[in-house]
Design a protein around this nucleic acid. Sequence first.
DNA 1: CTTTTGACCGACCGAACGTTCTGTTACCCT
DNA 2: AGGGTAACAGAACGTTCGGTCGGTCAAAAG
Lengths: 189, 189
Amino acid sequence: MGNNDKPAANSRAELENRLARVFIEHGYEGASLSRLATASGLGKASLYHHFPGGKAEMASVLLTRAIARLDKTAFSRLTKKQPAPVRLGRFVDAFSSYVDHGERPCLIAVLDHGALRAVHGDTIRRRFLSWGERLAATFEETGMKPRRARRAASDLLAGLYGNLAMARMLDDASLFQRGTRRLKKDLPS
Amino acid sequence: MGNNDKPAANSRAELENRLARVFIEHGYEGASLSRLATASGLGKASLYHHFPGGKAEMASVLLTRAIARLDKTAFSRLTKKQPAPVRLGRFVDAFSSYVDHGERPCLIAVLDHGALRAVHGDTIRRRFLSWGERLAATFEETGMKPRRARRAASDLLAGLYGNLAMARMLDDASLFQRGTRRLKKDLPS
DNA sequence: CTTTTGACCGACCGAACGTTCTGTTACCCT
DNA sequence: AGGGTAACAGAACGTTCGGTCGGTCAAAAG
């Protein structure tokens, strides 16, 4: 076996979860194959059974998964049947739980550095642009003019990621939670 | 020579600038000795003349320098003789120029990851805590109650780092500049 | 009972890693 | 002129890197 003290992941989802945690913690360059093997409970060679493209494919798959998840769990709430202010509140809550209420950095942001930025930076950029537009459109529904709605969308995203960054540097997730509560309170009603 | 197409750095400050750029761009694990050597115009072995402790010492020295700079150029403005609102505005401007108006990530934040987090995370945490208190004290001087001043300080720092993160992911420094302008406008007068 | 297949891994590979050894210059000091 | 030293680099060190190879083993398929 690849590891003595950890049971192997018993499902594809569990395997990806464990790999994602390594990438989040150490970044792409710091996530070595031996670390990934240990964390997954598999041998290095076995990882190539699941990801023939090696480390690059793992990162790519995990990034795609993270984007899909953030889209499905958070941004998709912006296009539901509730009134716009409710949708915005739900979105903030969903984003918060996506980053584990401030405990975990965002994998998308983590992978947008170093060697991977050249590969996936554009995908990430486009995605955030589209998300920003969706967010702005929702703010418009609350009665804001396009210009102001754009500002509100930009401020909200920056507020979310900023509070996440501060919570990480101060090693205090409650800081993110308080910041998020404030962001919600300032939402249009 | 360690390099063919780049002139060697001609001063200690210039050397550190070039090394810092590599750490900012690639992170600690991604900043390989050969990259550092190439960027500095020195041979790998020569870097050990200036930093006997190797890569770890480079990062440590550069981190200390970044903290000192941010303190001196930005946070020190909070304890000058001008009225508090003016000091806050100056602080935001100074922070903005510290990160090259949104073009460059903050080295302190970049080095607070992976292997280096265990080594320097606590130093960084304490520093940001102290900076947050200084910022809150200045907000208090504008008439805010302690509780609200703390919130304002936290929101301002989060806003700064959040806009920086968004500017990076969207690859658009003007986004940081607009966000910063808004943060200044919302400052107490 | 055989064959095939999917999951797995120990052992290995060349390359790159961070680091050190052994110098060679070039400049200062007396 | 001679001795010391700061600044540098070529070449090699042992280690770890991402990645490959040949194979085992259990269970499904025939």
